[in-house]
Amino acid sequence: MNLFDGAISNLEYGLKYATLKNKTIAHNIANVDTPNYKAKDVSFKQLLAEENEKQISAYRTDERHFDFVIKQTAPSVYSYENFQYRHNGNGVDIDKEMSELAKNTIYYNSLIDRINGKFQTLNTVIKGGK
């Protein structure tokens, strides 16, 4: 019997994504006045597109089974190379970064609340419903 059914590990990967995104946004904000700095971002969509390009294979016991792979990967950071927001070559839009920071903070806090709920449920079960 799997106690957590993968929910907590999935929430953990969500937290890792949100943490990396927060660090990337903070790095962009810190370099808002740096000449020729190109803004960076973390994208789940880009990660998914990169994974879809790779060869997919699995051990199959029957030829009618579909090929599949289950792989945990870390989100990757990419840079907007050809984007220039200011005359000095800087590619950081501070308004966009601040709104992304607020959105990411809400996402992170919702994941924390969900994990706390999971642990509270486990605590209730351990204590026998008291």
Rank of each mutant, 00 (worst) to 15 (best):
N2D: 15
L3Q: 13
F4I: 09
G6C: 05
G6D: 06
I8C: 04
S9F: 08
N10K: 12
L11Y: 08
E12T: 14
E12M: 12
E12G: 11
Y13V: 00
G14E: 03
Y17C: 05
A18I: 02
L20W: 05
K21I: 06
T24Y: 02
I25P: 00
A26T: 12
H27K: 13
H27L: 13
N28P: 02
I29A: 03
I29E: 01
A30P: 12
A30F: 09
N31L: 04
V32S: 10
V32Q: 10
D33E: 14
T34F: 03
P35G: 06
N36H: 10
N36P: 04
A39R: 07
K40A: 08
D41N: 09
V42S: 02
K45H: 11
K45R: 14
Q46R: 09
Q46S: 11
Q46E: 12
A49S: 07
E50W: 00
E50S: 07
E51L: 07
N52P: 00
E53Y: 03
K54E: 02
K54R: 06
K54W: 00
I56N: 02
A58N: 07
A58C: 02
A58R: 05
Y59Q: 15
R60L: 05
R60M: 07
R64E: 01
R64Y: 00
H65Y: 00
F66M: 11
D67S: 14
D67E: 15
I70S: 15
K71N: 09
K71H: 05
Q72I: 05
P75W: 01
P75L: 01
S76H: 01
V77Q: 04
Y78N: 00
Y78L: 00
S79E: 11
S79K: 07
Y80R: 02
E81C: 02
N82S: 06
F83A: 08
F83R: 10
F83V: 12
F83C: 04
Q84E: 04
Q84R: 01
Q84A: 00
Y85P: 03
G89Q: 04
G89E: 04
N90G: 07
N90D: 08
G91H: 05
G91N: 10
D93H: 02
D93F: 03
I94T: 13
D95M: 13
D95Y: 14
E97I: 02
E97D: 01
S99E: 11
E100W: 01
E100N: 08
K103A: 12
N104V: 03
N104K: 08
T105S: 13
Y107T: 03
N109L: 12
S110H: 15
S110T: 15
I112K: 09
D113C: 03
D113L: 08
D113P: 02
D113F: 04
R114L: 09
R114P: 01
I115F: 07
G117C: 11
G117L: 15
K118L: 08
K118N: 07
K118E: 13
Q120D: 12
T121A: 14
N123T: 11
N123F: 09
T124A: 08
I126D: 12
I126T: 13
G128A: 03
G128W: 05
K130A: 15
K130M: 15
K130W: 13
